[in-house]
Amino acid sequence: MVNLVAAKKAATCFVGAWGFINSTLLNTTSGNIITEDWAYPVPSGASLFTPNGYTALLVTPNDTAKPDLRPRYLTQNDYASGNDTEWAKLGKYSIAGVGPYHLSNVTWPGYDCGDKGSHGGRGEDEEANEHFEGPEGTQTGTFFSSTLPSREGPYEFTFKFHESCRVWNLHQPVGGGLERIAWYEKLPDQQVY
């Protein structure tokens, strides 16, 4: 049986814009973090989730920590601002993708749908608790467009929300005994008009 309360809460938690706290590539055999990873320790970029089930992701190297991987002087209006090697770095060390997403296997550990308010403020009283642990589960989706064509197609990762859905993390196996672990923080809503 699907836990609809947890699934709806997870969908609500995802909607919005998210900035990176950090990103690590973990060797699951040795337990070592790959510090040479271009996105380590804090990449630039963000992820977006819409209420109607779409996501967009942009990840680039941090141009302060790794300026050699993301030359700031390159401008799209002037291809002569750099050579082909410098321009190629932008493609090699970044990823952007967009497509629909779906949530499954969603649970909300410790939350009983029939017992609102008795688990540290979860349920109707969640505003009273500053740091409840949120839902967790699996997100799958399909990028129908990506800066790297090989990234078009299906993706999957597990997620868990923390701090009243202000923070979440993902775990995504990327092959070769490696796993991407990324932490995101909610970006503030902006005035549209």
Rank of each mutant, 00 (worst) to 15 (best):
N169S: 10
I34R: 13
T50M: 05
C113F: 10
R180D: 06
G134V: 06
I21N: 13
D84R: 06
Y93A: 08
G117F: 09
P100Q: 06
A7R: 11
L57P: 00
G19M: 03
L90P: 00
G114K: 05
Y193I: 13
A10T: 03
A11R: 14
G141H: 06
W183Y: 14
W108R: 00
A10L: 03
P61V: 14
G121V: 06
F157C: 12
S164A: 08
W38C: 07
P67G: 14
T85V: 13
V174I: 13
W108S: 01
H102K: 12
S150F: 10
P188V: 10
E124G: 00
Y155N: 02
K160A: 14
P41A: 12
K116F: 10
A96F: 07
Q139D: 01
C13L: 10
P43M: 05
G45W: 02
W87F: 11
L170K: 05
E124L: 13
V106Q: 03
Y101W: 07
T138S: 01
L48R: 09
N62P: 01
A88L: 03
F14G: 00
L4M: 09
H171K: 14
R166T: 15
V106S: 04
H131D: 10
S47Y: 04
N129C: 09
E185A: 07
Y184Q: 10
N3W: 06
C113H: 08
A6H: 00
G134E: 02
A39E: 14
F143L: 13
G137D: 07
E179G: 04
Q190Y: 03
T28F: 04
V15G: 06
L57F: 14
S150D: 04
I33N: 01
L58C: 12
P43D: 03
K66M: 08
L74C: 07
V167M: 11
T12M: 09
P71H: 12
R72S: 14
G99P: 06
T24E: 11
G97A: 13
S150N: 08
I181T: 07
E133A: 13
R166L: 15
E36C: 05
Y73E: 14
T55H: 09
E133C: 02
T158S: 13
T35D: 11
D78R: 11
F49S: 06
